[in-house]
Design a protein around this nucleic acid. Sequence first.
DNA 1: GCTGACGGCGCC
DNA 2: AAAGGGCGCCGTCAGC
Length: 533
Amino acid sequence: MLTVTSPNTVDWENMPLDEMAYGNAIDCDLTKRCGDLMVDELDYLGCLDLYENCLSLILPIMAEVENKGLLVDTDELNDIGSLLETEIERIENKMFTILPKGSFEKGEVNFASPKQLGEVMFSSKGLKMTPRMWSEKTGEPSTSEAHIKDLSKDLRRDKKANESRIEFLDCLLEYRKRVKQFKTYVNGIKSALEYNGDGRVYSQYNFATVVTGRLSCSAPQVKKRVEGKRGKVNKIFKKGVSFHTLPRPDEEGKDRVNIRDMFIADNGYTFLAADYSAAELRVLAHVSQEPNLIQAFKSGEDLHKYTASLVYGKTIDKITKKERQIAKSVSFLIVYGGGPEKLADQVGISIEEAKDVFFKFFKAYPGIKFWMEATAASIREKKYSESIFGRRRHLPNVDSPNNKLKHQAIRQGINFIIQSSASDIMLHGILSLYARSRKIGLEILATVHDSIEAQISHEKISEAAEIMRSSLSDTSIFKKLYDIDFAVPMAVDVEIGSSFGDVKEAHFDEKGNLTNAQELSEYVQTKANSRSY
DNA sequence: GCTGACGGCGCC
DNA sequence: AAAGGGCGCCGTCAGC
């Protein structure tokens, strides 16, 4: 609320209603007055259409999503919880046996403290490794994953002499991952369930957080004064988790822990997820108007294979997994502003090879290079960049005397256009879907940047799948609303299953009909029948 | 006991 | 020459 200067010290839950009503009234008044001014400003800047066609409409829809929340499978939660507990204990014990005898005993050192862990890894008392990356802010030796992997890779050159070090580093990464899963999700969801009391968890979708216009997602919290304690608010209760950071299992199926399995559709409902395939690269095709990239998307071929075939001068059927992976990486690095060094690091090739890949990529898609250069020039001149829907990001750092900041601003500006445009396409997709969802009873449960999660009663999965696919992929609305001829189709994949973590691809025929409905629905029903709800 | 900065890492 | 965009959340630690 606008009128609250220190929200963390206010006890909302115990506030008298009239006091809260008064505060809210002031907020409404101020918001309205600010709103009128801002509408004029939006009009002046050329993005009032976006606000009226999309942003103003989507707010109440997301409020509905927030209030609906998601059902948690508590059996799954408990299973994952005890699995993680024993796993964490096992790894921790193992780590202490690896350390030199008499150096660090269990209970004496906390691996979660980068400072203490640094002692273990780098001091003469510990594993005596030589650091080569340091924190930018504090100058302390880094214990980051990148550093650990780098050290580990080097140690493996003399495997015999470094056996225990390598093992420790492997354990450390595993330990961190499991601890994070346990602390953030098992603990987090358990305490949320305890507070909510309805078996559900909730997320909050924030509209004015992300510079590009993406929604951010966070766990709503209640600040509360606990009985028996004096003074102001002294406890924070979380009502859920951020849905945007839920981990995926390392290897689908192989990892026994899949945090996403804990989130399920309501009893009698099937879980559906629709996501745009390569949304940002499609936007890149549109803004750059690169003919080969446009053709790649129009062809309906696998994009990364298509790109690889241009880069390596081979037919698509000759493209190896590795070549496809390289083509995929280089595409995303372009969107983020990454260079050959990152590519080499990511896919395990030499920097020379990586430079060659970049060269050939730009040769295959010359319009991308041209667009990036033209865009950079425009950003330097105007000090801002602008998305296809008229959103702007101001980038004063293009004039910074600091080279790093200067180049960073250019990358941010280029990425802004792509990320922001993709984000608004998705918001329009939500609107289209919502408009068609009511009559079949489809309910949106969550959104994650380029995907929408929803539920539908079992018997209507075919209709629901088709509605999700067709609403999200409809680009004709951009012509209608903004006179934009979108250059490529927005392809959408739909998945259907028994939980957020357990979905299988839906297949459609040319007419858009779901062809594997029978198989999917049997699978989902079987799963649902085994649940206690 | 609280706050904010920081390291670290999850996702798109 | 070097260059990864955008977030949220956890624990630790220093400072008040």
